[in-house]
Amino acid sequence: MKYIITIVAALMITAVASSQSLYSFDYTVSFGSGETADYIQSPSFRGITFEGRGFITDQVSLGGLFTWTTFYEELAGATFTYESAALTGTQYRYINAYPLLFQAHYYLGTDDLEPRAYLGGGFGAYKINQRTNMGVWSVEENNWHFGLSPEVGILLPVSFDTYLNVSFRYHYVFKAKETIDHSWFGLSLGLAWGD
């Protein structure tokens, strides 16, 4: 996994440092899917995304992304059965996900003063901490994963070098050790600006 992180970091730094850049900070709402939704059904309203992109042509950028997303759910007084045993208590479930991705995007149009839709995606390392607290006990999985993330979005100009950024992204994270496959959708809204 450390090789993936090194490669992703090197690609991100190279891409952002070498050309015209675009940065963005977004508030991100996430919706679990698959096994992630089985574990926590509630959407996440705790998410933040930081991106840096460097343009290698007028319509193509390379860059990196860092996100912090927290899923949380309280299952109050739920009863869990296993064979003849039954256990009742309040479970507190948490997933903290920290993707660190290398990204590439293609932009429709080249005029900075017009709305520009883009599509792209990324791959890289996901640090995921999954924890269940019940009673005075805690079960935790804390691992690095490899994952992929396609994305579509649009940049809406609000001034000469500032944009409103809206994007919709899907994360698929491959299991590591005894963990589940994590996946979720992220809807981000924020500001982007160039230099």
């Binding site: 309203f45 705790r46 998410g47 933040i48 912090w68 927290t70 949380y72 309280e74 003849s84 045993a85 039954a86 256990l87 009742t88 208590g89 309040t90 507190y92 948490y94 607290n133 019940m134 009673g135 005075v136």
Partner: peptide, 21 residues
């Protein structure tokens, strides 16, 4: 983001477990 950090057990009764077999 920090203002809405998720919670957890707040009271001793939140830690209560009932087990039967």
């Amino acid at each position: 983001f920090s203002g809405c950090y998720p919670g957890g057990a707040e009271y001793t009764s939140d830690t209560d477990l009932v087990y039967t077999n």
